[in-house]
Simulated scan of single mutants.
Amino acid sequence: MKVTEIVPGSPCWAQLSAGDVPAATGFYGGLFGWGAEADPDPQYGGYTIFSHDGAAAAAVAPLMNPQQPVMWLLSFATTDIDATCAAAKDAGATLWMGPMEVGDRGRWALLNDPTGAPFALWQAGAFAGFGVVNEPNAFGWVDLSTRDKDAATAFYANVFGWRVWPDERYPMVGLGEDMFGGVMAMDESIPPEVPSHWAPFFVVADVDAAAATAQGLGGAVVHGPVDVEMENGPRIAVIRDPQGATFGVFASRDGA
């Protein structure tokens, strides 16, 4: 559906950092049918907006330095980025960059939560973020993998006012009655050098077909496709793109 309002505290943007932007646009365009338009202003270094049916769906940006990991970064909306940065730092976050102006488009900051997961804050100006969500080939969910599930959920509840739906294995988070993500504990099977991290999940019409397409485009399926064992649980797959960034795809099992 087209986005008419982004609620403060909710996910508002997903941005891929990639070493090869043209290769990334080819992969995601082939997988989701996204269009891609690079910003002509040289100060933005080729920042490229992905679009779905003419609406902003996500973005890809070149790596800022060789040490930067190839990864998806989630941004959360705020109406006062300075106050939210201060609240996040008071709650144990580390502020790495910003808040900084991004032309007339808005203000941005990069942080790590207390468990080490990077995330960004966005205060909208001319650009609000997602123009379409919750339909096939658009953003639909966020997933946090962390080594301290309780600390993570407490942090985001404190800073953003998120509601937490308690669950021993996979607590879900959202605002009011609107769920938009979940939190998964990283166990001993995950190498210790892998940090806590957020990943976007995109809605697809057919998870198995999307996983097969991703493999055909040079990606790898690292989990699934599998039905989530919970009431009304979706079918999901976790995919690693050819440059190493991880994201998920999902579809409801009832076709809704």
Rank of each mutant, 00 (worst) to 15 (best):
Phe130Trp: 12
Leu144Gln: 10
Pro136Ala: 12
Leu144Asp: 02
Asp150Thr: 10
Trp141Asp: 01
Pro136Cys: 13
Lys149Ser: 13
Thr146Asp: 01
Leu121Asp: 10
Asp143Tyr: 06
Ala120Phe: 01
Phe130Tyr: 12
Ala138Val: 03
Val142Gln: 03
Phe139Asn: 06
Lys149Cys: 10
Ala151Trp: 10
Phe127Gln: 05
Ala128Gln: 03
Ala138Leu: 02
Glu135Phe: 02
Asp148Glu: 11
Val132Leu: 14
Asp148Cys: 07
Arg147Gln: 05
Glu135Ala: 14
Asp148Asn: 09
Arg147Thr: 01
Val133Ser: 11
Pro136Arg: 05
Gln123Pro: 15
Arg147Leu: 09
Trp141Phe: 14
Leu144Pro: 14
Thr146Ala: 04
Ala120Gln: 03
Lys149Pro: 03
Asn137Thr: 09
Phe127Lys: 04
Val132Tyr: 09
Ala120Ile: 04
Glu135Gly: 04
Gln123Asp: 06
Val133Thr: 14
Phe130Asp: 05
Phe130Arg: 10
Ala120Tyr: 08
Asp143Cys: 06
Ala151Asp: 12
Leu144Gly: 14
Ala128Leu: 10
Ala151Ser: 09
Ala124Trp: 11
Asp148Ala: 11
Arg147Pro: 08
Ala120His: 05
Ala126Lys: 14
Ala151Gln: 12
Asn137Gly: 10
Gly131Tyr: 04
Gly125Val: 14
Trp122Arg: 00
Val142Arg: 06
Gln123Trp: 06
Ala151Glu: 09
Ser145Val: 04
Glu135Thr: 13
Arg147His: 04
Asp143Glu: 13
Val132Thr: 12
Asp148Ser: 09
Asp143Arg: 09
Phe130Lys: 07
Arg147Glu: 02
Trp122Met: 01
Gly125Glu: 06
